[in-house]
């Protein structure tokens, strides 16, 4: 216990990170240029002049995640998914990543249901906004807040 093994160690690169919770995630997704405003701009692009209605959209995302690199996200939209009445697109946005867009899913009557899921990256604690675009030209929305905690033992930058 008393012998210091340091002398025997071969170490290629010594790297000391500042702060035990060094924000490696911040390196992955620099939240520099991300703002709720840029998200609003991206949303307006999708909406045009249409009105945004609350409802019909259900977001399933953990309220608190251990790591923002891989956040499971499931979305379901209420719709009969018939020829005449269906969801055309599901748009996903975020507030604080470098880009406001996350994904757009294209659906139709052949989907049978409006149910999709994926895994997303969240650079920080923030809101995820989902907008469903219907075949009748209406837009429906919901949002969910996700708290992102960070890992304690970090990788040095490889």
């Amino acid at each position: 216990m008393m012998t210091d093994p340091t002398s025997q160690r071969r170490t290629s690169r010594r790297r000391f990170i500042a702060g035990a919770g060094a924000l490696s995630l911040a390196l992955t997704l620099r939240p520099a240029d991300a703002t709720p405003e840029s998200m609003q701009a991206a949303i307006r692009e999708v909406l045009g002049n249409a009105k945004l209605n609350q409802g019909r959209v259900k977001i399933d995302v953990p309220p608190l995640v251990e790591n923002g690199n891989t956040v499971p996200l499931s979305i379901a939209v209420e719709s009969p998914m018939t020829e005449t009445e269906h969801v055309k697109k599901i748009h996903v946005f975020n507030e604080k990543n470098p880009l406001p867009q996350v994904a757009t899913f294209h659906l139709g009557p052949r989907s049978g249901a409006a149910r999709v899921s994926t895994r997303i990256r969240l650079a920080d604690t923030q809101d995820v906004v989902v907008i469903a675009e219907m075949s009748d030209g209406t837009f429906w929305t919901a949002s969910a807040n996700v708290i992102v905690t960070l890992a304690a033992c970090n990788e040095d930058v490889i």
């Binding site: 891989t70 880009l99 867009q101 994904a103 757009t104």
Partner: peptide, 29 residues
Amino acid sequence: SYNGIEVFRADLHPAIAANPFLTFTTVAT
């Protein structure tokens, strides 16, 4: 595509996690 007809499409951005995972539905025709 299902027998040559597109039934689902996704446009993805950098906020999709590494090793993209997607689930969706379709009607068995």
